[in-house]
């Protein structure tokens, strides 16, 4: 079945859920995301209770540390990458493989931009003495934002693998659900970031 060559006319309406395996993948990625909800909730809750806590006389605090312009640019990059992956899925529905590959590549580039800024930010903090082991606050901050960053890395590796391995094969019902699952995961990364920029950065600056 997987070898079937499709045309736009024969391509099913919901390629991401057209076979039993695809349905399993579809439900599976969502169930996995549910487990990620409590994973992030645990790290997040810990961050909130350790915010600004450190050795006596610590000079670092969220209000002083975080820079909104950087957070804003990162937010825009990630949010836009969410839209571009929607475009990729739009082209998948229309059996336009080139469209899928192009938009997924743009998604990856935006994600890389986000990651570069995050690395720059971390580097900057470490440089001014706010390293991972500096205080409870720093450990919690790097763990929270770093866990999100790790998800970005995983998402990027995943999408790049898909783009590369399918470049010669084209779209079929075996790999369409994989693209779809990766895009759902990517959106979820954005969902988490919404909370991070609101609670960590915006509310952090407020003190």
């Amino acid at each position: 079945m997987e070898e079937t060559k499709f045309t736009p006319q024969t391509w099913p309406d919901k390629p991401e859920q057209a076979t039993p395996e695809a349905k399993n993948k579809f439900v599976g990625i969502w169930i996995f995301i549910c487990s990620d909800i409590t994973l992030f909730a645990s790290v997040f809750a810990t961050y909130l209770s350790l915010k600004d806590k450190g050795p006596a006389g610590m000079e670092f605090s969220a209000a002083e540390l975080f820079e909104l312009p950087l957070a804003f640019v990162m937010t825009m990059l990630l949010l836009t990458s969410s839209l571009t992956s929607v475009y990729a899925m739009y082209h998948m529905k229309n059996y336009n493989f080139k469209g899928v590959q192009i938009w997924m590549t743009i998604t990856v580039l935006l994600g890389l931009g986000f990651l570069a800024l995050e690395i720059y930010e971390f580097y900057h903090y470490v440089h001014i003495g706010f390293g991972y082991t500096q205080s409870a606050f720093s450990s919690a901050f790097f763990t929270l934002v770093g866990t999100h960053g790790l998800h970005v890395v995983v998402g990027l590796v995943w999408i790049v693998c898909l783009i590369v391995r399918n470049a010669k094969r084209g779209l079929n019902l075996y790999n369409a659900p994989k693209y779809y699952a990766a895009s759902i995961f990517w959106h979820f990364i954005d969902v988490v970031w919404v909370f991070i920029f609101t609670v960590v950065y915006l509310m952090g600056v407020l003190g």
Partner: peptide
């Protein structure tokens, strides 16, 4: 499942705060 996860996550925040 998603909303159940959200409810649980909310209790984490509540208690930790």
């Amino acid at each position: 499942f998603v909303w159940f996860g959200a409810v649980i996550a909310f209790t984490f925040f509540l208690t930790f705060l």
